[in-house]
Nucleic acid binder design. Structure first.
Length: 573
RNA sequence: CGGGGCGUAGCGCAGCUUGGUAGCGCGCCUGCUUCGGGAGCAGGAGGCCGGAGGUUCAAAUCCUCUCGCCCCGACCA
């Protein structure tokens, strides 16, 4: 590509709306432009980077035995009604009607469509296993789109689905995908963490998130440096031990204006862990009181799982006031009627607790579980935090931030049952297909790569996903010898499979250097009069900033082998 | 949806408090000079001040409504 002809609209400044680095750089480098909230146009450089990631996905998934399909975006409502998700998915599902008034939605994911397909075509155990994937635009009317392409309402996703005869087969398929995913992200040049994830109502340990470690990540992961355990903080088991302070008297104390745990702890001069948080939730439309030690955070997904609940959200102030007959901030378990009490394991049989008194501006001290109140259920209800013990080896863990770029999930028979995806086994018995699903956010992977690889001047692409490999910079447009050399190099590199841009714009050298750094070409070949007179070409690595001076003779091959070799290294590592 | 904030030239912003001629930097166009890290000078184009209504002799500025966007929380690739 000739820069003079290219549609690479770079910007010196980023629009105010862009906050995170990847978003700012993608706009500045001319990769994306916003059309509406969470809806982005991909410009040529953006498309090329994304295509690279897609291609790596294809190669690795095909290698793992998966096959590419292409499912419709426009989905008839009936399929979604059959699995119940037409109702469950809520506002995130973009719904529309056709001219006849029939209901449709834009696919936010494709379990329904793919399972429907497979249920029609697969009849015998001989037809299994199958592993099908697609790379396609997904639509989710996110509550809050943000960070540019990282969380859009329309985005490109690789989604794959495996179909097996039994659990064992499904687990093998799952394992193959985990391996393929590791290779994919490694080839994209990403430093990755694989974390055990919450598998929700389905249970089991067969869900993993692929996290690109980055401070701007939206996910928190607990990591044990000692044994390598790693899991989403929501999934990490937490065991908190509270001091055993039984035997004290239950005493009501006046705590004016002390609503939060910190305020109460400070006011009464108690350590926060002895001040028990009682939170009122609506659990499947029934109010329930959830209790945890005051210094920790409630983990809603653990609570949901422990209760087998479908929905769980914080009760609003009106409900709290009705149940506790007090202002928000003074809820407690003592004398609370008609409400289930679910307490964190750490509270079992503990005493010396500070509890809300269900009376505005009052708390109890010396509360004791089992004596002053009784929890109906005990469970682990706490979000893992820095320093919590590793569930595997007991060492203190660290909390790190990550961007979820991939998620694999053993689905079991949830969709195959709902959509009658059955087959006949060797004995002629009807069996339900066991499924797995596997997703990769393509655009998000590109953005994550930028989060992980940039400096103050711009993007530093890992070579395998760079939109172009080399920028040939003509430092002086008037020098005809330089032009000739650059043109030859440009043509020759193309012939060797290197993707090159020739910056032949009538601009000063500084402008070209700045753009090259911003766009992030892994290499810049600088063709200027000085070097040419000495018979040498200057090659600059974007990553290290090192400059090599290569003899003109054989320079093309040297550049090509360096770049292609680098890509190879990522692939074979 | 709750909380916070912003809409003025392609981009970044000032002007608004205290109504009266719409401005700055970058970018863009023309010319001359310059030419290895976002050049200098000169000239120029570009604005229903997000939209609607109201107050006023007069509104970017004050009031009401509305739309859009961003940030913080619950969803997810």
């Amino acid at each position: 590509m000739r820069f003079s002809k290219a549609f690479f609209p770079t910007l010196k400044e980023a629009p105010a709306e862009a906050e995170v680095v990847s978003h700012r750089l993608m706009i500045r480098a001319g990769m994306i432009r916003r059309l509406a909230a969470g809806v982005y146009t991909l410009l040529p450089l953006g498309v090329r980077a994304q295509r690279k990631v897609e291609q790596i996905c294809r190669e690795e998934l095909d290698r793992a035995g998966a096959q590419e399909v292409f499912l419709p975006t426009l989905n008839p409502a009936e399929l979604w009604q059959k699995t119940g998700r037409w109702d469950v998915y809520g506002k995130e599902l973009i719904r529309l009607k056709d001219r006849h008034g029939r209901d449709f939605c834009l696919g936010p994911t494709h379990e329904e469509v793919i399972t429907n397909l497979v249920s029609r075509e697969v009849r015998s155990y001989r037809d299994l296993p199958q592993n099908l994937y697609q790379i396609q635009t997904k639509f989710r009317d996110e509550i809050r789109p943000r960070f540019g392409i990282m969380r859009g309402r329309e985005f490109t996703m690789k989604d794959g689905y495996s179909f097996d005869r039994d659990e064992k087969g499904a687990e093998e398929s799952y394992g193959l995908m985990v391996e393929a995913y590791k290779r994919i992200f490694r080839r994209c040049g990403l430093t990755l963490g694989v974390a055990a994830a919450d598998s929700g109502a389905i249970g089991g340990s067969f869900s993993h998130e692929f996290m690109v470690m980055a401070d701007s990540g939206e996910e928190a992961i607990s990591v044990c440096e000692k044994c390598g355990y790693s899991a989403n903080v929501e999934k990490t088991p937490v065991e908190v031990t509270l001091p055993d302070n039984r035997g004290g008297e239950l005493e009501k104390v006046h705590t004016p204006d002390a609503h939060t745990v910190d305020e109460v702890a400070t006011f009464l001069d108690f350590p926060p862990e002895q001040v028990t948080k009682t939170l009122l939730y609506m659990v499947d439309d029934e109010p329930a009181a959830l209790m945890i030690p005051g210094h920790r955070e409630l983990n809603e997904s653990k609570a949901k799982n422990a209760l087998g609940a479908a929905t769980l959200f914080l009760a609003d102030a009106a409900v709290v006031e009705r149940i506790t007959k007090a202002a928000v901030g003074f809820a407690g378990p003592v004398g609370l009627e008609g409400v289930r009490i679910i307490a964190d394991n750490s509270l079992k049989g503990r005493g010396g607790l500070v509890l809300g008194a269900n009376e505005t501006d009052h708390h109890y001290t010396g509360g004791e579980e089992g004596r002053d109140f009784r929890a109906d259920v005990f469970a682990d209800l706490i979000v893992a935090g820095e320093g919590d013990s590793c569930p595997e080896c007991g060492e203190p863990m660290n909390i790190r931030r990550g961007i979820e770029v991939g998620h694999v999930f053993k689905l079991g028979c949830k969709y195959s049952e709902a959509l009658d995806a059955n087959f006949l086994d060797e004995n002629g018995e009807t069996k339900t297909i066991v499924m797995g699903c596997y997703g990769i956010g393509i655009g998000r992977t590109v953005a994550a790569a930028i989060e992980q690889n940039h400096d103050e001047d711009g993007i530093i692409w890992p070579t395998p996903i760079a939109p172009y490999h080399v920028d040939i910079i003509l430092a002086n447009m008037k020098d005809t010898v330089c032009r000739e050399v650059a043109e030859k190099l440009y043509a020759a590199l193309g012939g060797l499979g290197v993707e090159a841009v020739l910056d032949d714009r009538d601009e000063r050298a500084g402008v070209k250097f700045k753009d090259a750094d911003l766009i992030g070409f892994p290499y810049q070949v600088i063709v200027g009069p000085k070097g040419i007179k000495e018979g040498r070409l200057e090659v600059k690595s974007r990553k290290t900033g090192e400059r090599d001076f290569l003899p003109l003779e054989g320079a093309t091959e040297a550049v090509a082998s360096r770049i292609l070799g680098e890509i190879e290294t990522f692939a074979s590592a």
